Amino acid sequence: MRIALYNLTTTTKFGGVESFVWDLARELAGRGHAVSIIGGVGSRREAAPGVRVLTFPFISRRFWQAIPPLRRAYAEAKLLERLTLAVPALAHLARGGYDIIHIQKPYDLAPALLARRLGGAKVVLGCHGEDFYRGDTLLARHVDASVSCSHFNAATIEAHYGFRPQVVFNGIDTSLFRPLEPAERRNRPAQLLFVGRLQPWKGVETAIRALALIPDAELLIAGAGEDRVRLEGIVAELKLEQRVRFLGGLERQTLPQLYSRCDLLLATSHASETFGIGPVEAQACGLPVVASNFGGFPEVIDAGRTGLLVPPRDPQALAEAVTRLLADPARRAAMAAAAPTWAAQFAWPAVTDRIEAVYRSL
């Protein structure tokens, strides 16, 4: 099949959806499909063999948000950004001879459906969040198929659009994310780890406030984002400067080593978390997880066996769960042993089988 994976940000930034597109492209190309990634002009990763990358200019959402009526219209600014990409990309999308156009955001419904009318490709809507906007329900009903990254997200999509997508969990590279020889851990505090973008809804504040209630532990924060300055202020307010380390944004290739030297991963989101790629990668490396009982986290953590779930935005509950596990090395070791087997269901070959089955059904 000739497959277009169309998503502006795949070629302009790093993130969960972006990694999903790159990895899916690699897997599909390895199965003999002709795969093109179509995105915006910007810095991008090295493409896998057999994957063609095409980039087109666009007008950033920051330009649109500088216009006073759009300053707080986040969805509309993102929609305009996507539509400006569609103008130069549409001719190729329609005439590229594609069998499948797989989009990752509802913002791209209009150009994908127009390309289908002009070129005949089937349109697959990938659902990773709640990127809704006025008028999207009129477009979404015309897609040929839809897939969602979790049952939690599928229920949200069904409530909004009136149809339920097929659930196909996001995938991980188990050749990269696998157990490594544990790093030397003598004579150091327990190390807690957060991995993700520094956005308010990721709940890093909860992790920092929980740390103040956990003796003899450090918190490593791997990620970059707009919330860092505020979080650094909270660290200073709680006098935790010697126990919290901001590592900045890290390449994926460095994460397995980081997981191998830590004791627990903290996943603290309280909004917009439809899957949870970080907890899956950590478990694949044999690192137990303590996570918010929210969104997609309950689907990617085997509660009680590979980690624990706690109420979101509750530093006390998070601190108590972490303290219990830190005080019970045998239980942590059992969780670490069970985690890679549990995470194997998210390996890319299995995920690609499911995606490929959706394509073939069209």
Rank of each mutant, 00 (worst) to 15 (best):
residue 269 S to D: 04
residue 146 S to V: 03
residue 349 P to V: 06
residue 217 A to D: 10
residue 283 Q to F: 00
residue 83 L to T: 14
residue 123 V to K: 11
residue 329 P to I: 03
residue 238 L to Q: 07
residue 220 L to E: 13
residue 358 V to R: 10
residue 262 C to M: 06
residue 312 P to E: 14
residue 345 Q to S: 00
residue 168 V to R: 00
residue 60 S to K: 12
residue 217 A to F: 05
residue 72 R to L: 07
residue 143 V to D: 07
residue 270 H to Y: 13
residue 155 A to K: 03
residue 15 G to T: 04
residue 356 E to S: 01
residue 219 L to W: 15
residue 172 I to N: 02
residue 70 L to W: 12
residue 86 A to P: 05
residue 181 E to M: 12
residue 32 G to H: 11
residue 205 E to L: 10
residue 31 R to H: 07
residue 80 L to V: 09
residue 318 L to T: 05
residue 206 T to V: 15
residue 270 H to S: 11
residue 335 M to L: 08
residue 258 L to I: 15
residue 186 R to F: 13
residue 159 A to P: 00
residue 178 R to D: 06
residue 251 E to P: 08
residue 285 C to G: 00
residue 87 V to H: 04
residue 191 Q to P: 04
residue 257 Q to L: 15
residue 351 V to M: 09
residue 183 A to L: 13
residue 282 A to N: 11
residue 82 R to C: 12
residue 103 I to G: 15
residue 108 D to M: 11
residue 270 H to Q: 11
residue 59 I to G: 12
residue 338 A to V: 13
residue 176 L to G: 09
residue 15 G to C: 09
residue 40 G to E: 06
residue 349 P to I: 01
residue 55 T to E: 15
residue 30 G to Y: 01
residue 275 F to L: 04
residue 68 P to G: 01
residue 75 A to V: 06
residue 288 P to E: 09
residue 255 L to Q: 06
residue 161 Y to G: 11
residue 166 Q to R: 13
residue 148 S to T: 01
residue 98 Y to Q: 06
residue 237 E to L: 06
residue 306 T to A: 05
residue 305 R to S: 12
